[in-house]
Amino acid sequence: MKAVQILGFGTDPDLLSIVDAPEPESPGEGEVILDILAAPINPSDLLNFQGRFGSKPPPLPCMAGGEAVGQVRELGTGVDHLRVGDRVLALFAGRGNWCQRIKAPSVGLRPLPANADVNQLAMMAVNPATAWHLLKGFVALEPGDWVLQNAGNSAVAHNVVKLARHMGMRTINIVRSQSQCASVLEAGADAVVVDGSDLADRVQTASGNTPIKLAFDAVAGQATAKLGRCLANGGTVVTYGLLSSPSCQIDAADLVFRNVALRGYWFTHWFETSTVEERNAVYDVIAGLIESGVIDVEVEATYPMSQVKAAVAHAALEGRKGKVILLPQL
């Protein structure tokens, strides 16, 4: 079968290679064979290609790919909660799902909605779960509250917008350029502001001077401090990405005199420390919201695995309006 391998760290897509990998062995007791149907190219994948994801880079060469959706191809003995043809999340393989088939433990796997769009299901494991925890895990929010976030045109931000609207909250989304505003508003954002020196004033205007107690930071660096300046006394900035810098900056005056807090969130930590029951409780909600159309993230392009280099180059472009999806079976 075909799989994608990382040969070296960097931003050049030529550091990726399509290789012939051995077919998975027949499933043992409690195991399944999955055909990988679709896999999104996430910022974490791009960081992994650069050796910047996680506490230390993986040894090279290594297999590529994080989240994906798979379809059950073969069942091992003792697997009675799944059927051949069921679609399931493929997360347990860690970074290595950009391949055509994998063998995996069946524990914790459950069928996904049969009528849901396969590309939306492929994107449900990381970004919607991240958005869910950002909204539910740090500050007690009430209907009508405002939430502020940068990287407003990112996939996580779009999920925050849709989930916040579903929960009755409102969002202010910071983008880099005016050209990005329309797509964020179309996704359901209540307000969009372009980054700039007077950001705090324009955020206040957008919220009608309503105090904002929670902000989400995907950028790090000086962007963290900009968010802190926009928050009410006692507000919280949650950094979950490092798109521009490996470190966060925040004004000491905000920390000391206004009690603004800086927290961190990493999806992988939650996934590795939560129980199967805790994970499935979140994914059951997300799957239902995908099936009902509440979560519907724009897909800009799909690529067969044979065009993985073009797909990665596309995913790295600034100003994209949607996700890039890899289709290993094509």
Rank of each mutant, 00 (worst) to 15 (best):
residue 21 A to G: 05
residue 45 D to S: 07
residue 62 C to P: 11
residue 31 E to I: 08
residue 41 I to Q: 10
residue 58 P to N: 04
residue 45 D to M: 02
residue 24 P to N: 05
residue 57 P to I: 08
residue 62 C to L: 10
residue 45 D to W: 03
residue 60 L to W: 10
residue 54 G to W: 06
residue 20 D to G: 10
residue 54 G to Q: 01
residue 42 N to F: 03
residue 18 I to F: 07
residue 61 P to N: 00
residue 37 L to S: 00
residue 55 S to L: 13
residue 57 P to L: 01
residue 55 S to H: 09
residue 63 M to D: 15
residue 49 F to G: 13
residue 38 A to H: 03
residue 53 F to L: 15
residue 43 P to E: 12
residue 32 V to M: 08
residue 63 M to L: 15
residue 57 P to T: 06
residue 59 P to V: 10
residue 61 P to L: 01
residue 43 P to L: 13
residue 57 P to Q: 02
residue 19 V to L: 00
residue 38 A to Q: 07
residue 35 D to T: 06
residue 24 P to V: 05
residue 54 G to S: 05
residue 63 M to V: 08
residue 23 E to Y: 12
residue 59 P to Q: 10
residue 53 F to K: 09
residue 24 P to C: 03
residue 58 P to D: 06
residue 43 P to T: 11
residue 59 P to N: 11
residue 51 G to A: 11
residue 50 Q to A: 14
residue 64 A to G: 14
residue 52 R to E: 13
residue 55 S to A: 15
residue 49 F to L: 15
residue 31 E to H: 10
residue 34 L to W: 04
residue 56 K to C: 10
residue 36 I to S: 00
residue 31 E to Y: 08
residue 42 N to K: 01
residue 26 S to N: 09
residue 44 S to Q: 01
residue 22 P to N: 09
residue 27 P to Q: 03
residue 24 P to A: 04
residue 22 P to M: 07
residue 20 D to Q: 13
residue 33 I to Q: 06
residue 27 P to N: 03
residue 45 D to A: 07
residue 43 P to Y: 08
residue 51 G to I: 04
residue 46 L to N: 03
residue 42 N to V: 03
residue 28 G to F: 07
residue 52 R to P: 00
residue 37 L to C: 03
residue 20 D to P: 01
residue 35 D to E: 15
residue 36 I to M: 00
residue 53 F to V: 04
residue 43 P to G: 13
residue 55 S to K: 10
residue 42 N to Y: 05
residue 35 D to G: 01
residue 51 G to Q: 09
residue 60 L to S: 04
residue 42 N to H: 12
residue 32 V to E: 06
residue 48 N to D: 11
residue 56 K to L: 12
residue 48 N to E: 13
residue 50 Q to F: 08
residue 18 I to C: 11
residue 33 I to V: 15
residue 50 Q to K: 13
residue 19 V to P: 03
residue 60 L to I: 11
residue 30 G to Y: 02
residue 64 A to R: 06
residue 61 P to D: 02
residue 58 P to Q: 10
residue 35 D to N: 13
residue 35 D to R: 05
residue 20 D to E: 14
residue 18 I to Q: 09
residue 45 D to I: 05
residue 47 L to F: 14
residue 35 D to L: 00
residue 51 G to K: 05
residue 63 M to P: 10
residue 58 P to Y: 02
residue 58 P to V: 04
residue 63 M to E: 14
residue 60 L to G: 08
residue 35 D to I: 00
residue 58 P to S: 11
residue 21 A to T: 12
residue 59 P to G: 05
residue 53 F to N: 14
residue 54 G to C: 04
residue 39 A to Y: 07
residue 29 E to S: 15
residue 34 L to Y: 01
residue 24 P to R: 01
residue 22 P to H: 09
residue 26 S to C: 02
residue 58 P to T: 04
residue 32 V to Y: 02
residue 55 S to R: 12
residue 26 S to T: 13
residue 24 P to M: 05
residue 41 I to S: 10
residue 37 L to P: 00
residue 39 A to C: 15
residue 45 D to C: 09
residue 31 E to D: 14
residue 47 L to C: 06
residue 19 V to R: 01
residue 49 F to N: 14
residue 59 P to L: 12
residue 28 G to I: 08
residue 29 E to H: 14
residue 23 E to D: 15
residue 36 I to H: 00
residue 35 D to F: 00
residue 44 S to F: 01
residue 23 E to W: 13
residue 32 V to L: 10
residue 34 L to P: 04
residue 59 P to C: 03
residue 48 N to V: 05
